[in-house]
Simulated assay, not measured.
Amino acid sequence: MILEAVMLQVKDGMEVEYEEAFRGASEIISSMKGYISHELQRCIELKGKYLLLVKWETVEDHTVGFRQSKEYQEWKKQLHKFYDPFPKVEHFEQVHIS
């Protein structure tokens, strides 16, 4: 299992619209092969800042299976207009859990 982690900065004043769009777009990502789960967290200290965490079975399930799919094009259409600057995606593997 890998964890995709993305810090997102949503354009000022678009937070409510973004959260609504994200709920709709969640159906897209959750239907993909290798998808395990995802969550979106809103920052308490900084308005418009979010943390997206997505669990995938493999890195390739995200980078190839999702990112190169027609479903990703719809994901982009629904969500990418909200971000400024455009987010950097990183992948992590578990080292320790208690």
Rank of each mutant, 00 (worst) to 15 (best):
Y35K: 03
K81E: 04
K47M: 12
D61W: 08
G65I: 02
W75A: 05
S26L: 01
R42M: 11
Y18S: 01
A25W: 07
H80I: 02
Y18W: 11
E71H: 02
R23N: 07
R23D: 08
L51T: 15
K55S: 01
V64Q: 10
A21I: 09
E45T: 13
F82R: 06
S30C: 00
Y35H: 05
E39P: 03
G34A: 07
I36A: 01
K77R: 08
K33S: 12
L52R: 06
Q68S: 14
G24I: 06
Y72Q: 05
I29Y: 04
D61A: 04
W56K: 05
F22H: 11
W56S: 10
Y35F: 14
K33L: 07
K77H: 06
H80K: 13
G34C: 06
K70Y: 13
S26Y: 15
E19K: 11
E45A: 04
T58Q: 02
Y50A: 10
Q73I: 05
A25K: 05
A21L: 06
S26F: 12
A25P: 00
Y50K: 15
S37R: 15
E74A: 03
L53F: 07
Y35D: 00
F22N: 02
G48I: 13
K47D: 15
K49A: 11
L52N: 09
K81C: 02
R23T: 11
Q73C: 03
E19R: 08
E20P: 01
L53S: 04
E71Y: 02
E20Q: 14
W75M: 05
V59R: 15
I44V: 15
G48S: 14
K77Y: 07
H80E: 14
A21M: 11
L52E: 03
E39H: 10
Q73R: 12
L79D: 03
F82A: 00
S37T: 08
W75T: 12
C43N: 15
D61H: 14
R23F: 10
H62W: 06
F22P: 01
S31H: 08
A21E: 13
I36Y: 03
L40D: 08
D61F: 07
W56F: 11
I44F: 15
I29V: 14
Q68A: 05
K49C: 05
H62N: 09
E39Y: 12
L46Y: 13
M32P: 02
E60F: 10
L51E: 13
G34M: 03
S30M: 00
L79G: 02
E19D: 09
A25C: 06
Q78T: 14
Q68R: 12
A25M: 07
V64R: 10
K33R: 10
R67S: 10
I28A: 04
I29K: 03
A21K: 13
K47I: 06
Y18R: 04
Q68L: 08
G34I: 05
D61E: 10
E60A: 01
I28G: 01
T58D: 05
W75N: 09
G65D: 09
L52G: 02
T63C: 03
R42A: 15
I36S: 00
L53H: 06
T58E: 09
E57V: 04
